[in-house]
């Protein structure tokens, strides 16, 4: 197999959005597409291939200006000559607050297939899901958004676990494959929610998206226990001090 890296050269300007299609010549077999090290950090359309058209759309928060940098990489069979890609249907927009269309150059390089993809044992990176609501989404109900990065093989999918009200806190999670934004089933938010990011070789990272506040009774019990320890400790010290003063006076 061979790794084809498609890089974008923004030239003298800063760019922050890329979208459209890369046309791949007919008959070229693409084994897989990877965006683990792409300069694009959020995809409206994750790179996908259909009938020779590789569609993608994404943004670079804050923009990028500098040397050519990786956009996506493709895995092709070893013996296939490097295809002549058509980038004319790709739009590149400037990081100017207006979305001005600009021209950029694209480069294709061939690299040895990375062993790291095959032997990847590193889970996706830590990430922070966010809860929000919007009148135009899910009829104003609360939803969860999340996005993780995996620098070795890339993110495969996400799973969400919601413990319904009434479940024992020791009950195991039932994971379900889901996408962001995710409509929260338990809108009362009285049980915890966890999100799992899974990379392309199966490594997992689980983060807690939400924990309900503790029952005030637990705070009271905790305060009582701490108070008891403080009193016991004070009594112990006072006794020790009074014994020492008695022995020194006698």
């Amino acid at each position: 197999m061979q790794n084809i890296i498609i890089s974008i050269d923004p030239g003298p300007q800063s760019i922050n959005a890329i979208g459209g299609e890369i046309i791949i010549p007919q008959g070229v077999e693409v084994i897989s597409i990877a965006s683990a090290n792409s300069v694009v950090k959020f995809w409206m359309e994750a790179p996908s291939l259909e009938a020779g058209h590789l569609s993608l759309a994404g943004i670079i928060p804050g923009g990028y200006q500098g040397q050519p940098i990786e956009l996506i990489s493709l895995i092709l069979p070893e013996s296939v000559p490097v295809p002549k890609f058509d980038f004319s249907k790709l739009k590149v927009l400037a990081n100017d607050g207006q979305g001005t269309m600009v021209t950029a150059k694209f480069y294709v390089t061939v690299t040895p297939i990375a062993d790291q993809i095959i032997t990847d044992r590193i889970p996706p990176e830590e990430f922070t899901p966010l809860i929000s609501s919007d009148p135009t989404l899910f009829n104003g109900q609360k939803f969860l958004v999340f996005s993780a990065q995996d620098k070795q093989s890339g993110i495969s999918h996400y799973e969400v676990c919601e413990k319904k009200a009434g479940d024992s806190k020791f009950a195991s999670c039932i994971w379900q494959k889901n996408e962001s934004p995710y409509l929260i089933i338990n809108q009362k938010l009285d049980q915890r929610i966890e999100v799992k990011a899974v990379d392309l070789v199966g490594n997992e990272r689980v983060v807690r998206a939400f924990s309900p506040p503790l029952d005030p009774l637990y705070y009271l019990i905790g305060a009582i226990i701490v108070g008891v320890f403080i009193l016991w400790g004070a009594r112990f010290i006072i006794r020790k001090l009074s014994r020492s003063s008695r022995s020194s006076s006698s």
Partner: peptide
């Protein structure tokens, strides 16, 4: 966003600028 009555790449570019 861009105010053109649709959400497309231009709107996301504006968002990326003010990120």
């Amino acid at each position: 966003l861009s105010g053109d009555g649709k959400v497309d790449l231009v709107d996301f570019s504006i968002m990326a600028y003010y990120w």
